[in-house]
Nucleic acid binder design. Structure first.
Lengths: 312, 312
DNA sequence: ACATGTTGATGCCGTTTCGGCAACAGCTAT
DNA sequence: ATAGCTGTTGCCGAAACGGCATCAACATGT
């Protein structure tokens, strides 16, 4: 199904790879063919689309505009294809997800497994990144659905849903804090803490709170892996901070205890946003999964608020 | 600037004209070329796109799906072009408007004139239709902006704004009703009335109210032109019904008086919706005009509510 | 400073695609 | 039955495309 002129496809490949020859390799054509199509495009637009650096190509301003258009075209073509396919009953396609690490423990594997159980022809691609990288991948068209901490998102993205989860401390069952219902930051800082590095979004959630305190204690351990932090906390090394989402049902049968965090008497929230490219209609199978994702996250949000009712 | 494969453009032309030969004439190519491109498209999609009737072509279900995709592509191409053009400072393009007749007296000419005064390179195409035809033209991609009575709109359209205006009676200055501040339907029906035909949206606004009355009096005159109805009312022929919008400042220095309509003690509203295709990003110049349109209608809505404050 | 590997651009040439002309079959309305 | 419309199909010239080899320009490594 090759509706669109080769120039469109070639341009897209060159933009992604950042090089004409690399694009030619991906497309299985001669580099000269790619080069010519790009030149032809630039002639028709009347303005260069790339800046030729010795080491490859970089988009110019008009190039970025065209990139946006081409992305819209190709993504909408995907949707059209899926619409036609779903007409003959066969759903197949790939849902591409970019998300932060909190989802990998329980939410995403559960959802994907259950969805694959019902629609086996739909495959998945997931990539774990930092919050800002998630939004960036989405903007560049490298993912269909993005889940990230709800910061200010760029205007070319649309926030489909916003769910808030409580931030909390994670300690071993034998930890002195383990018997409390909730904890404050000060209480936690009396013990060795396992601090997240700036590349994790938890860092940016806790940083403003820590800055409010009179003293900024030395963290015992710094890490950039949610998993590692959790395992360290289970071994009694110290207090880790995570959203309840990252724990799932693990907290029941494991050595870990989750303690909702309070600050100045009110809970500390972590806002999770679900994002999609704004200028786009999703394929049916992607839309379907998106609905389930929103529903599931809403369900978890509700369940947690029952388990840890707001104190205020 | 011809990025896209001829098949796309040909398909678009065939869909609009409903005939291969007619499309060929529009495109200035031989009909055989168009025919082949369509056949090639159908082969690549793997399913017929048109039903061949003896008198022309009609879209099949997959054809309609492709039509939607092609429309998205071509409209987004327009936006890209305008983005590039606005980069070099020169705004030019065409804003295509479909609207109901109420706007033609004052709102639209005022706005277009003022906009052309500032951006002379932007041209306009306006088409006056019935409310449902406005929405249909928008769906088919034949207009960029639509203004219609706010009925239930199809899901592929987006309601940008919703403004409500009072419906009222229009009578000559010497008419017995002219001294009143407001009127009810019963009071009007005591006199000869100029009734709108079903093709005008006013008909559908008044019909449910008339049905509530005990008797349905014979209308003196039926017409399908807002203008004609206004002129008839000015000559004292009878009572016409219109939204305040259709009158503008004419009511001051003319023979006409506008009397807001009350029904069961509360005003009768006419909801005006501004619509845009949902799966679409507007070109900069269109977006700019749209903003002004929304602002202007909001302004008029506010002004009228001052002139005729709500009685309830 | 030199060699090497990379980048994108070009000239040449065979293949593919596209478009125009004319003729065809199918249908409709007069 | 005739005339007028429809879409389709061979045939052929023109335009576009892709592949190969080559070139100049630049970066990197020795």
């Amino acid at each position: 199904m090759r509706f669109h002129s080769p120039a469109i496809q070639y341009f897209h490949a060159v933009r992604r790879t950042g090089s004409i020859r690399a694009a030619a390799r991906v497309l299985n054509v001669a580099s000269s063919a790619v080069s010519r199509q790009i030149l032809k495009l630039e002639q028709e637009v009347g303005s260069p689309l790339f800046e030729r650096n010795a080491r490859g190509l970089t988009l110019t301003t008009v190039g970025e505009m065209l990139a946006r258009h081409v992305m819209n075209v190709l993504q909408d073509l995907d949707r059209f294809r899926s619409d036609v396919a779903s007409l003959s009953g066969a759903w197949h396609g790939t849902v591409s997800i970019a998300c932060i690490e909190s989802l990998t423990e329980s939410v995403l594997p559960d959802l994907i497994a259950s969805h694959r159980g019902r629609a086996r022809r739909v495959s998945f691609t997931t990539e774990v990144k930092g919050s800002s990288d998630v939004l960036e991948a989405l903007s560049r068209g490298e993912a269909d659905i993005g889940i990230a901490i709800a910061l200010r998102h760029p205007p070319d993205l649309r926030q489909v849903a916003l769910k808030r989860f409580r931030l909390g401390a994670l300690v071993a069952r034998e930890h002195p804090l383990a018997r409390r219902k909730t904890v404050t930051l000060e209480q936690c800082l009396a013990f060795p803490v396992i601090q997240a590095l700036p590349e994790l979004s938890i860092y940016h959630l806790l940083q403003p709170l820590i800055a409010q305190l009179s003293e900024t204690p030395e963290p015992a351990i710094q890490a950039n892996s949610i998993d590692l932090m959790r395992e360290l906390a289970a071994r009694g090394v110290g207090v880790a901070f995570q959203t309840q989402l990252g724990i799932g049902r693990l907290s029941r049968d494991s050595q870990l205890v989750f303690l909702p965090l309070d600050n100045a008497g009110s809970p500390v929230w972590s806002d999770l946003g679900i994002y999609v490219r704004a200028e786009r209609t999703l394929p049916a199978y992607t839309e379907s999964f998106l609905q389930e994702l929103v529903r599931e996250l809403g369900e978890r949000e509700r369940r947690e608020n029952v388990a840890y009712p707001q104190t205020s």
